[in-house]
Design a protein around this nucleic acid. Structure first.
Lengths: 233, 233
DNA sequence: GAGTGGTCTAGACCACTAG
DNA sequence: TAGTGGTCTAGACCACTCC
């Protein structure tokens, strides 16, 4: 007896994926309406709705009122990259974490940063440089600028024992951000702090963060040689 | 009159985010139950459920049966990277796309690839090298290995005019994949095809793809100097 | 064992949009 | 303007897990 009380939205989601993969519903084709599918599967429309809604979020189908549900023609998949605090990333590798402050200076906001953050001229920013080690080997060099107006009591924090990343996460949680990944050559500070020859290719993550529409910080995180960021989709 | 017939799940989601950001519900704290929130907002429990479920998917709260809903202490945000076909990426930049096949060879699967794909010894793979240009400037060098057993009639395709990326997307749509991003130095083919000096840091994306649990392809895509992958979260 | 979230149902009204 | 998805409601039962 394989009877089940009711059809779950996950059953429907998988069945729909299967029909798409087996070309029962080819790319670009129109699916039956929610009502028709509900009748076919013997469940409520809400159940079908949830299944199809999730597939739409994944970018597998597109949905339009009156237009119906369609299998997308050129799938654009979304890789989900979990971005955690460096300490956690390192501890998840079962490595020992060590943090060190390199420099901490209050400066006038440079023009390039003003443009990036959209803050008024003459504003002051706190400029920080830090190192994050895994098992006493250089893991990440962090260079950060914090908008002092957005987080005034950042001036009371010395960042000697706790990194700005974690401090801000506790202070300004659940903010919005823009991220850019790139490959850069090791120069100046980087080659020095990450212990690599000049020009070594390094993986870099730049991030601008806002909290409730106020620009808070811009950070450039450069990883040790050979670092890979991985995910599934 | 700002009256509204009913409270939407989006209203609730935003109100909850607001209360978290303003520390009404600090990190680590327990939220009221769905029933309590439904009573407070004057809506059905299902509405509260959807709002909180989405926040849980975003990693802002964690939920456990009997344990209730809790604000997470160390947020792990998920950056969503849209991964499209190269042609589309280039066309979205309003640049002209050009594709060129560099080489196409049937080979015995090398040991490292056997391990990566988990395919039997002695299997054959199609090895391809291609270039993708944007406005006649090198944009991406693609090196790919295709499991011939998984897609037999790949042998009928010359890949002279259509890239393997697009061909596979049409042939084997909605597959699963593992991705790794890294920074690599330009060497051998790379410096040649991307027109950069030896050792230039380049952004690279490696991806292994399965279709219905069968390994299909492994691809290494190396981008032109200075390429950035961007997203919001 | 009891409390909480997870899900399904049946019905309703609304909002968008293709024809 | 008619058809489709988008959402809300009120109620129900279930599954997990903390105490």
């Amino acid at each position: 007896m394989t009877n089940q009380k009711s059809v779950s939205f996950q059953d429907i989601r998988e069945e729909v994926i299967d029909r798409i993969q087996t070309r029962i519903w080819p790319q670009g084709s129109l699916l039956p309406t929610e009502l028709e599918l509900a009748a076919e599967f013997g469940c409520a429309r809400a159940t079908v709705n949830r299944a199809l809604r999730e597939l739409a979020e994944q970018g597998i189908v597109t949905r339009k009122r009156k237009g119906g549900t369609r299998v997308v023609t050129t799938p654009v998949k979304h890789a989900k990259l979990p971005i955690a605090v460096v300490r956690q990333t390192i501890e998840d590798m079962n490595a020992g974490y060590r943090y060190a402050l390199v420099s901490r200076t209050l400066i006038d906001c440079p023009a390039w940063l003003q443009a990036k953050l959209g803050i008024p001229e003459g504003a002051q920013v706190l400029h920080l440089q830090c190192m994050h080690h895994a098992d006493n080997r250089p893991f990440q060099f962090e260079e950060r600028w914090i908008n002092v107006n957005a987080v005034p009591h950042v001036m009371d924090e010395g960042f000697l024992t706790v990194g700005p990343n974690e401090w801000l996460l506790a202070e300004v949680p659940f903010s919005n951000a823009e991220i850019a990944f790139s490959a850069v050559p090791a120069t100046g500070h980087l080659q020095e702090f990450l212990s690599v020859p000049t020009g070594t290719p390094l993986f870099q993550l730049e991030r601008t963060t806002w909290f409730r529409n106020d620009p808070v910080t811009f950070v450039r995180m450069t990883f040790h040689q050979g670092y890979q960021m991985r995910t599934t989709y």
